[in-house]
Design a protein around this nucleic acid. Structure first.
Length: 189
DNA sequence: ACCGGGATGTTCT
DNA sequence: GAACATCCCGGTG
């Protein structure tokens, strides 16, 4: 999986990540929803105004995990892609829980049903135990036990797409993709 | 099911 | 001081 992030536009990487598996040690889920963030050309991207302390990982080498803190309490995770210095990444928005589900339930006591464990970008970080200490980890070498793996499942032949969620700018760009019909997708499009 | 408001604190203007 | 790539809970229908 490591090489597939190099030099590739997040709008191409994002749909390819559907049905890949995000792993943290014994916990894992199949990726069912993603969004592309496109650096200096994308006003919704954290990278739009150039490098800062917070977004440094986005401007580093592709194939790393960019984990950021938001709303005073939540962590969200991205896979950095493109070329170093571009500030491009794919936000992982939802997973279908695969392994370590008991551990996920313990990490997310507010989840009433298993489909609430990973059905949002901050939910899946809580479920998998990903926080700021994982910012910058190398996915290709499974640094810290974190990786994105190909288990042989192809991306969906019909990936649904539509506008991104939770933005005040860039709302017109259809840069969100999801697995049609999957119950773990954060919202219906 | 859908909707509205509060939580909570870092980051940037 | 405002904004924020969100989530949870309690209301109503």
């Amino acid at each position: 999986m490591g090489r597939s992030f190099y030099g590739r536009d997040p709008r191409l990487v994002a749909p390819d990540l559907l049905n890949k598996v995000l792993v943290h040690r014994e916990r894992a889920g199949r990726i069912v929803e993603v969004e592309a963030y496109c650096g200096a050309e994308d006003p919704a991207s954290h990278a739009y105004r150039g490098p800062t302390v917070r977004n440094a990982t986005m401007f580093g080498p592709p194939g790393r995990l960019y984990v950021y803190f938001t709303y005073g309490m939540h962590w969200c995770a991205n896979a950095v892609c493109g070329d170093e210095g571009e500030g491009r990444a794919v936000l992982i928005r939802a997973l279908a829980p695969l392994r370590g589900v008991d551990h996920m339930r313990a990490a997310r006591p507010a989840a009433r049903r298993d489909r609430d464990l990973c059905s949002g970008p901050a939910k899946l970080c809580q479920a998998l135990g990903l926080d700021g200490t994982f910012d910058g980890t190398n996915l290709a070498s499974a640094e810290g036990g974190v990786s994105i793996r190909d288990d042989g499942s192809a991306p969906p032949s019909l990936a649904a797409n539509g506008p991104r969620i939770g933005l005040s700018v860039g709302v017109d760009k259809p840069w969100r993709w999801w697995v049609e019909g999957d119950r773990n997708v954060s919202r219906r499009g």
